[in-house]
């Protein structure tokens, strides 16, 4: 496969994963803004997904429709959902002959969906949840379409590599934000509420209830989000899937490049696997998550260098 195409395919998946993660995060945040209208602030989300100067974010901080419009529909915001979908589609355009027609049409439809006036009106003046549900559902359609139409070749592997790499980064990031928030203003009573929202956003709430019988503790949440092998959004699960999909590329790789990547992915996987940070203090948990994050970025850079020809 062309290096450029492999790179594009990887980014289709990364942007779609980012879109999905972001929509879920915004959805739960929106719900929580309705729960506790009094002191809800979008500050931390805006810091993550907006490039507005601090002063301007403070102006819209407490105004949910404005925040949602900015984060979802604003084409001037580089990190907005609509820009992510646009970029995913642009990458798909450049790799059209290596993804199935169904996947291309699904992304193309998504691109038109987020420009649909009805969605815009729901977010601006109506019930944003309806818009969220429609959008998230279309994202699910994308996953299903990839799964049931793509041949199990290089293209499929690169889609999965992009997906799990991005997902691992997202999960680590979300966990880290919550830990930081707790660190900055310890509020033991609302502790559980915030963890609940994190788990909702990662679609891991039901699993958590079953595993930990409803007891909300930082230790348990960290354990599930980092280590749970049955939780498709846990960092370890993502790394294992990344390994699995990468190993399938062996036949199509230069031996040297393969060895380099295998080393990096293996090292990071083991770094996560053979740690037990759930029992450590919040400070060292945060440092650990930072380390994992930079190792994941390192993997992405190495793919660029060894597989995508971007030296």
């Amino acid at each position: 496969m062309l290096s450029r195409v492999a790179n594009s395919i990887c980014w289709i998946a990364r942007y779609m994963e980012r879109t999905n993660g972001m929509l879920r995060l915004l959805r739960t945040n929106y719900i929580s803004s309705q729960d506790e209208v009094a002191d809800f602030s979008w500050h931390s989300v805006l810091r993550l997904y907006s490039d507005l100067p601090l002063k301007q974010t403070e102006q819209i901080n407490n105004h949910s429709p404005k925040v949602l419009e900015h984060l979802i529909l604003d084409t001037n915001n580089t990190a907005s959902v609509c820009n992510n979908i646009y970029r995913s589609r642009e990458n798909a355009r450049a790799a059209q002959d290596h993804i199935t027609k169904e996947v291309w049409q699904c992304l193309n439809d998504y691109h038109h969906l987020i420009r649909d006036q009805q969605i815009h009106n729901q977010i601006r003046y109506g019930d944003p949840l309806t818009a969220f549900d429609t959008l998230i559902q279309h994202g699910m359609l994308y996953y299903g379409t990839v799964d049931s139409t793509m041949a199990r070749g290089e293209g499929f592997n690169y889609l999965n590599i992009g997906k799990f790499l991005e997902r691992a980064i997202l999960s680590a990031d979300m966990l880290n934000i919550n830990l930081t928030e707790l660190n900055n203003n310890p509020r033991p009573s609302t502790d559980a509420v915030e963890w609940r929202y994190l788990l909702y956003a990662l679609s891991g709430y039901e699993l958590y209830l079953k595993t930990y019988q409803g007891k909300f503790e930082t230790k348990n949440v960290v354990e599930q989000v980092l280590y749970d092998g049955n939780f498709p959004h846990s960092v370890l699960y993502c790394l294992q899937q990344l390994t699995r999909n990468f190993e399938r590329l062996k036949e199509e790789s230069l031996p040297d490049s393969y060895a380099e990547m295998e080393f990096l992915i293996g090292k990071t996987t083991n770094h996560v696997k053979y740690s037990n940070i759930e029992n450590a203090g919040e400070k060292s948990q945060q440092i650990f998550l930072q380390e994992i994050r930079s190792e994941l970025f390192h993997i992405a850079t190495a793919f660029n260098q060894f597989y995508f020809g971007n030296t």
Binding site: L2, S3, R4, E252, L254, Y307, G309
Partner: peptide, 21 residues
Amino acid sequence: ELVEGSDLVVDNHIVYIKTTK
């Protein structure tokens, strides 16, 4: 394969495409 100029290299009068392999 759909290629662009940046995917091509010529070496010793032979044209190649840059692939993952």
